[in-house]
């Protein structure tokens, strides 16, 4: 009985999680193309200030969680070590999503450039003890216009 539940959870995690990941990546790629016209800079604090009329700070954040299949597969990976690709894609998705959210809110405001972009990642320990419950990723920067 237990093994059945376990297998069902893995199956659900694998199929639904994979599908959602694919959809999310398609969505991210589409939005990234749509926002390409606004350059993002990770410098800006140590240089001379650019000419602009107004500046405002924008923040984008997202909390992502791994699915059951990824949890199991990562714990198996822990036995032999090496790249944990299932987590890599998860964090990559989160980071791009957070940046897109920041970018989209800046574009809405009318920004022509976003300067001094910084990322912050923190582990929001979920109900699960240890390991990766959920990760919050935030991106922030200053939009100028």
């Amino acid at each position: 009985m237990d093994i059945l539940v376990f297998l069902i959870l893995i199956g659900v995690g694998y199929f639904i999680g994979n599908r959602r990941e694919r959809q999310h990546y398609e969505d991210i790629k589409r939005r990234e193309k749509g926002t390409l016209h606004v350059p993002i800079m990770s410098w800006g604090a140590k240089q001379d200030l650019p000419y602009a009329h107004e500046a405002e700070m924008f923040v984008g954040s997202v909390v992502v969680a791994n699915d059951y299949f990824k949890t199991i597969s990562a714990s198996l990976r822990n036995l032999v070590g090496g790249r944990v690709t299932v987590y890599e894609t998860l964090i990559d998705r989160g980071r791009r999503e957070a940046m897109l959210r920041m970018k989209e809110s800046a574009i809405e405001w009318g920004a022509s450039q976003i300067l001094n972009v910084r990322f912050e990642t923190s582990n929001i320990a979920g109900q699960s003890q240890g390991g990766m419950g959920a990760v919050e990723i935030m991106a922030y920067g200053t939009g100028i216009r």
């Binding site: 659900v12 997202v62 699915d67 059951y68 699960s128």
Partner: peptide, 11 residues
Amino acid sequence: NIVGGELKAYT
């Protein structure tokens, strides 16, 4: 946590 993805409530 079974299906993964964004946790909107936490965000």
